[in-house]
Design a protein around this nucleic acid. Structure first.
Lengths: 335, 335
DNA sequence: GCGAGCTTTTTTATCGATACAAAGGATCTC
DNA sequence: GAGATCCTTTGTATCGATAAAAAAGCTCGC
């Protein structure tokens, strides 16, 4: 494969001039540029990215660590991030952490190998105790959960406010005994805990009692676990007339479980999710949900990372971006 | 950040010895190895991947070009591929082609920049006319569609056979007027055309007539287009009692469209899809479908690519792997 | 005690591109 | 026409790691 030297020789110039042409430096005479371009085309020259990276100290690639690209929400996010990164001329390399803390920590040290110029990390397994691990010497943006005050930028959903809005919507539709279908409430900053907080706020504001029997934790936020739990609730749980599911994936499972139990949605029970994944609009019944504006979040996450990549030194303090949200009302809450 | 030279100095050895330790070469005295490891730890040394890549001529990263990671089938595939690549110590960088021919061709030339050691390409937009573009000097594996005889390895689904099996299943369940919901039939090797062929085969084998009015092309294989088309069919199309959808995504749209039109599934019409995405099991009604064993396909695709990456020279002839499949019978065909 | 045949370590050159500084031309001013 | 100034081009050194070959240390057996 042709190198920059080969092109230089073929065009009768120095390697440096070829480099100048490639990088669009000013001060290259048009005639020379032309000759170089022709030589490049003739030899089918491609820049060797490894060499450029070595010299420039950057790789042009950012890392994205998510639990699994196959989960609808993370797939959506990954797609948006790849698109956003592309606008900055950056490629995205994906690590799957399986939502496990140790893999999330490993992703942090991978980019220290200079594999990536920066890392976007969707933390699920890490908790406040791991803040120290974020003290790394390369740009990191934490995505998707609320802040636990580390030394890095964050892009977060308005978890509490949006969860409260979703719950309030159920109340406005007449629900009085609203179940919460969530994951384990481990610490104060995971998705389930934050949305749980919003749920409580809304109940309180409406003067409704919080029945602990209606707070249903499933071991993992999967459709299967949610379906099981919903069936159990309908079979021998307390009475309920609404369910707020912490994710659309959980809601899909719940809808299935309720159908198995012969519960009519929205007739007997109303259901609302969170994420607005593509499938939600096409379920039967279609799923009401919270739309957190994924594209905006992706956009901001990449923008923050790029800003960090610019400065070598770490900016004075970290930025925090909380996305907007909107409620999408569909059949499952009785459109 | 510390370099290999710094470590060498700190440990009182040459850079080469440090390199030998890093790469687990034999013939390093245990005491020396120990000293080097300690120096590495003390200086928090990380290998500079760019430098290694330049020297070795490989990047440790493979490219994956798919239409969009957010589409359930490609998300599933991407997840499986990332996992499979990880087992070989390879990272995966994702390009989204939007199913557009020019972007698929661009992905081919990207890896010629030596960004990737090889490329896995899910072709959707490219056709037989583009075979010439596959003549590149780095490993490529084409994934997911049938072969159009290019100079590269292929991993394919058993599209025709599986589509025939799906159609046959509908026939066995008593359907006599089976619609096909597919994309545009452009050439002979795209997903829609191949599955259309299987559909025809099954009808013919069963002695059923092929009614062209029941072959429904939608402009894109999305839920939205499918839902629209299904509604139209129910509203003022010919009578039908079964639908074979070329993908599960299309089937989800169709289920929604039929529900809108008040058509009962599986009571009045039975529906079967293709892909067995995660959501299919949880729809109401749950969706019968074809399971093409994604993990096996991913496994083989990476294995083929790795084999090519080993040899520098191109092996004598290209390999072709056709995955197995199984039918998953659920409610939508009246389990 | 000496060389054969190991194991262990170092030296040297290189992968391909680019930063930097400096040199070679052209143009302009007075 | 000389010098200043700008535009254009070119050496040279370097990014950090590793391949290949050479050199230095050991361990034997005879």
């Amino acid at each position: 494969m042709a190198t920059i030297q080969d092109v230089a020789k073929a065009a009768g110039v120095s390697a440096m001039t070829v480099s100048n042409v490639i990088n669009d430096h000013p001060h290259v005479r048009p005639a020379t540029r032309q000759r170089v371009l022709e030589a490049m085309a003739r030899l089918d020259y491609r820049v060797n990215v490894a060499a450029r990276n070595l010299r420039k100290g950057r790789t042009g690639t950012i890392g994205l660590a998510v639990p699994e690209v196959n989960r609808p929400y993370y797939g959506r996010l990954a797609a948006a991030l790849i698109t956003a990164a592309d606008r900055h001329g950056l490629r995205v390399s994906i690590e799957q952490t399986g939502a496990r803390r140790e893999n999330e920590l490993a992703a942090l040290s991978l980019s220290r190998n200079r594999l990536y110029d920066g890392l976007i990390l969707a933390t699920v397994g890490m908790g406040p105790a791991d803040v120290g691990s974020l003290e790394v010497d390369h740009p990191v943006v934490i995505l998707g959960e609320r802040i636990f005050g580390g030394p890095v930028d964050h892009v977060a959903m308005p978890n509490v406010a949006a969860a409260a809005a979703a719950t309030r919507h159920l109340i406005e539709r007449g629900c009085r005994r609203i179940a919460l279908l969530c994951g384990e409430l481990r610490d104060e900053v995971d998705v389930s805990s934050l949305r749980h907080a919003g749920y409580r706020q809304a109940l309180e504001a409406a003067g409704l009692p919080l029945d602990p029997e209606l707070v249903l934790s499933v071991p993992s936020l999967t459709m299967d676990a949610a379906a099981r739990r919903a069936r159990a609730l309908a079979a021998d749980g307390p009475a309920f007339d609404g369910v707020f599911c912490v994710t659309d994936t959980v809601a899909m499972g719940a809808l299935r479980g309720l159908a198995d139990a012969g519960v009519r949605v929205p007739g007997q029970v109303k259901v609302i999710g969170f994420d607005n994944v593509d499938e939600s609009a096409f379920l039967v019944p279609s799923l009401s949900t919270v739309d957190p504006d994924h594209d905006l979040m992706a956009e901001r996450a990449v923008a923050l990372l790029v800003a960090r990549m610019g400065h070598e030194g770490r900016p004075a303090h970290q930025e925090e971006f909380v996305s907007t949200f909107s409620l999408v009302i569909r059949e499952s809450t009785g459109r």
